[in-house]
Each structure stands twice: as structure tokens, then as C-alpha cells.
């Protein structure tokens, strides 16, 4: 992990230090996003939507217009905003439960409709806010509060491969990637491309961020990073799944 010296300008200093647990990946994803907003100079045009899940804690995280929505419903709220006012740059920020379970119909349909929105989905392999139940992304064999003996895929199904699915249902103008909070620079680059894709009016953009949840994983710092870097990245390979060909402008 790299230490970033100063707070992004687009952060709201009044709400810092932030409210995530120590060692939580959410803060790292939002730091990458903050820096991207600064670099793109879009603080006055961004509308940030946060889901219900631990992402709800980010409702006053940025000095950008922010709407906290319902569990799974951030995508349609942001789609609604973008449709009504395409000048705005909308970012839907959600967890894996919000995006892949309760709100999966919105993800699938916004992607196939090619809505010009950018989604950032935090994959921490569990429902963190509600105390660590199984999520669509819980790994085979992983113990959670509702898979106390480990996720038995014959009963509880297989992990949801989000970017793989999204890249299968989107057009060539979509941007789809999976990053990790363990590779800050790469993750930040993905988020930047996702926003640039929206700004260029090209197409739907989706970034899954592999993230940490030491609280519900019940891991110390060392085991937290080992789980993320060794286990999660094997199940969920980071990388770019779809990069639109950028025409000369």
C-alpha cells in the first residue's frame, strides 16, 4: 500500500477522519476517486451517489453533490440524473451486495442500455454493514455469518463474476475493469478511465474494486492483505476487461 501525503481537494475535510473501520478498503477506493476528480477538474459537475452498505458512510465524504440512496438503488438514481441532465458526471458507488444481489437488475439493464454512467463497486466478499453475511462474491469455502461452515457452492451457489458478466453484455464503447486496493495506482487509473469514458459520452463504465473488510473477516493487518492479495485475486483476476478504442479528437 502506498501512503498518499495529502487529502484530495475534492474531499470534505469536515467529515475527516472518515468513519470506516481501520484497515477498511472503502477509504482507499474513495481516495483514488478523490484524486481522479481533482485531476479531471470535475468537482463542480460530479454527482456522487452512495448505496446503503458501508458505502453509506460516504454520504458527506466529498465536497461534491452527493445523494445517499437505498440498498441496491444507486444505479437507477444516477441513471435518472444523467438522463435528465447529461451535463453532470454521475458516479454510483456501491457494495457487492448492493450491485450484484438486490440491485443486479439495475446493473444489467443500465449496462445493456449503455447508460452513460460510471459505477464503482466494492467487492469485500461479504455484507459488511449488516454484520458479515454471505454476499454474491463470498468465495467458495469462505466462512460468513450465514455460511458458518464455509460457502458450500452446491447449496449457496458460486461467486458472481461482475466485470466478466458486464463485459459480456455491453457494447464496445463500454469500459470494464477490476482493480484492487492493493494496487492503488492501477485502481486509480481504472477509475479515471471509467470517468473519462463517461465524460467523452462514449458509454457505460464499470469498475469493481477488490477491497478489505478486516472487521468481518476477523483478520489482523497481515492476514487481511494476504486474503486480498493471495485468495481474492485468484478468484477475481484484476485487469481491464473492456477498453473502448479512443478515436483521435
Amino acid at each position: 500500500m502506498e501512503i498518499q501525503p495529502k487529502m484530495p481537494k475534492s474531499w470534505n475535510p469536515a467529515s475527516k477522519p472518515h468513519k470506516f473501520c481501520p484497515g477498511c478498503g472503502h477509504g482507499i477506493v474513495l481516495k483514488a476517486l478523490g484524486q481522479v476528480i481533482d485531476e479531471l477538474g470535475i468537482q463542480d459537475r460530479v454527482v456522487f451517489g452512495c448505496d446503503i452498505g458501508c458505502s453509506l458512510l460516504s454520504w458527506d465524504f466529498f465536497n461534491v453533490d452527493t445523494v445517499q440512496t437505498h440498498h441496491g438503488r444507486t444505479t437507477p438514481v444516477m441513471v435518472g440524473i444523467k438522463r435528465a441532465n447529461p451535463e453532470l458526471i454521475v458516479i454510483a458507488y456501491m457494495g457487492d451486495g448492493g450491485g450484484y444481489a438486490i440491485g443486479s437488475q439495475h446493473l444489467v439493464n443500465a449496462a445493456t442500455r449503455d447508460d452513460k454512467v460510471s459505477l464503482i463497486l466494492v467487492n469485500n466478499t461479504n455484507y459488511a454493514m449488516t454484520g458479515g453475511q454471505m454476499a454474491p462474491t463470498t468465495m467458495p469455502g469462505q466462512k460468513t455469518e450465514t455460511t458458518p461452515y464455509g460457502r458450500d457452492v452446491t447449496q449457496a451457489g458460486y461467486p458472481m463474476m461482475g466485470p466478466e458478466m458486464v463485459s459480456a453484455i455491453t457494447q464496445d464503447n463500454a469500459y470494464v475493469a477490476r482493480g484492487s486496493v492493493a494496487k492503488f495506482r492501477q485502481l486509480k487509473g481504472y477509475i479515471k478511465k471509467a470517468l473519462e469514458n463517461q465524460m467523452a459520452g462514449r458509454g457505460f463504465s464499470f469498475v469493481e474494486a477488490l477491497s478489505t473488510c478486516p472487521t468481518n473477516w476477523r483478520t489482523n493487518a497481515e492476514k487481511t492483505w494476504a486474503f486480498l492479495e493471495d485468495k481474492m485475486t485468484k478468484q477475481y483476476p484484476p485487469g481491464e476487461f473492456k477498453v473502448p478504442a479512443v478515436k483521435e479528437e
Binding site: H70, R73, P76, V77, G80, A84
Partner: peptide, 8 residues
């Protein structure tokens, strides 16, 4: 929810 977005 999209209507809410439009209103916003």
C-alpha cells in the same frame, strides 16, 4: 428511483 434522479 430514476424519477427521483430526474427530480434531483
Amino acid at each position: 428511483f430514476t424519477t427521483i434522479g430526474g427530480v434531483l
